[in-house]
């Protein structure tokens, strides 16, 4: 135990850097996923069958194949086709973005569908264009419903980042294994690792709760700060359903 703590102190710098790598991969992956989620989610509601078909195919493809396989494909197989992604970290961020973007698209679609029909009719009555309707009326209401399922996806993404250690990136899991090798303390090293991940997940959840409170306050539905410290809500539809079934929100 003593040597473990000494070693932990010695590697504090490395571990700190590794946490930053993990957080960086999570945040960048989440941003890419968010962008893709909105693009795919909106395209999947297009009037045009072809557009809808393409969006759906992309969504189903990335939901239907495993993230693990997608990452390995990008990392090992894509270079064979002549495309070498410059860094392993970027490779992972792209895989996270594509995979979670596909799940997120279902969240976006579900939340938009959940906006009451009267709101659409109201916007039509005000003679808004389709783009205005979406930007001014529908999305400002829909995005609050997206926050809890997005939070679930964000934590899933964070929990997927140990994949980085399998493609040579010195992330938190990688450093945890170094710690284990250096101290020989298997149980303590892994317990430490799990606790750090748990804390990271909790911090992300707190941030998302804060975002939700702010969003609700703006819409005048405030629950105030009371809900801030609660843990994640259950996702009764399961990850692969996203909010597509309307239950994730």
């Amino acid at each position: 135990m003593g040597t473990f703590l000494t070693q932990l102190g010695d590697s504090a710098g490395n571990i700190g850097a590794a946490i930053l790598v993990t957080v960086e991969a999570t945040v960048l992956g989440a941003i890419l996923a968010l962008v893709l989620a909105f693009i795919l989610g909106l395209l999947a509601r297009s009037r045009f069958l072809v557009v809808r078909g393409i969006a759906r195919t992309i969504i189903e493809f990335f939901r239907g194949t495993s993230l693990y396989v997608q990452l390995f494909w990008l990392y090992f197989a894509l270079p064979v086709l002549g495309f070498q992604i410059s860094s392993a970290l970027l490779c992972a961020v792209i895989a996270f973005g594509l995979n979670f973007g596909a799940y997120g698209a279902e969240v976006v679609r579900g939340a938009i569908n959940a906006v009451p029909k009267a709101q659409w009719e109201g916007a039509v009555a005000l003679n808004m264009t389709g783009f205005q309707r979406m930007r001014l009326v529908i999305l400002p209401q829909a995005w609050i419903g997206m926050i809890p399922p997005f939070n679930n996806l964000l934590i899933q993404l964070l929990k997927s980042t140990p994949l980085l250690s399998l493609i040579t990136v010195a992330d938190l899991t990688f450093e945890g294994q170094q710690l284990r090798a250096a101290t020989g303390q298997t149980a303590l090293s892994y317990l430490f690792l799990l606790v750090v991940y748990f804390i990271l997940a909790y911090i992300f959840t707190l941030l998302m709760n804060a975002l939700e409170s702010v969003a609700k306050a703006r819409l005048g539905r405030g629950g105030g700060l009371r809900g801030l410290f609660r843990l994640r809500e259950a996702d009764p539809t399961g990850r692969s359903a996203g909010a597509g079934a309307g239950g994730g929100a």
Partner: peptide, 17 residues
Amino acid sequence: FVRSTPLLVQLFTVYVL
């Protein structure tokens, strides 16, 4: 705790323990 921590690390942990 279990649902907030990575499956991969859980697998390693039990595997070595």
